[in-house]
Amino acid sequence: MNRPAQHFREKAQVLDEAALDRALTRIAHEILERNAGASDLAFVGIRTRGVTIAQRLTAKIAAIDGTTLPVGALDITLYRDDLDMRGAPVVRGTDIPFSIKDKTVVLVDDVLFTGRTIRAALDALIDLGRPKMIQLASFIDRGHRELPIRPDYVGKNLPTSRRESVAVRLREHDGEDRVVIEEPEDV
């Protein structure tokens, strides 16, 4: 969500397929450990890749614990504070086919950067009901926060410069599982 419309080239690979899978497995265990099991848990992924990561995490939890947890998809376009700065927005729709009331909602996104996406997601979630608790799983935390937001679960902390970009590439969207740092091509 943080990538301006310019071309990026790959600078370095951060996680390969196996490392990405290990990080997901660890987060799944951490979620179960923190919440003492899976009861009352619900997952909400931020479109697009947050939803895929949420689905992967619930599959892991099902394999560990045998519990099938609901996964919803959240589109935060209508809640952004920077619509004026982003040109024509595309709304892809929120699809959360369960009540989040009194649930512990694990909010999932691929890359945590300024925190503004999460701010918008929290507003969007709270408009849908009153969860008991919201926890944040960010697969990559690349720093540069502009708001007081901190993830509960992190796949990898990845210090970056602002001009770089982090791409979490997933099989379902990109045909491969890996995380890379990219930099603008004009440099």
């Binding site: 376009t77 209508l78 809640y79 619509l83 729709g93 929120t94 699809d95 507003d123 969007a124 408009d127 849908l128 009901g129």
Partner: peptide, 12 residues
């Protein structure tokens, strides 16, 4: 889906 919500309002 906004029409199906309890709180039918988004800040867009």
């Amino acid at each position: 889906e906004i029409a199906t919500r309890d709180i039918k309002k988004v800040p867009a």
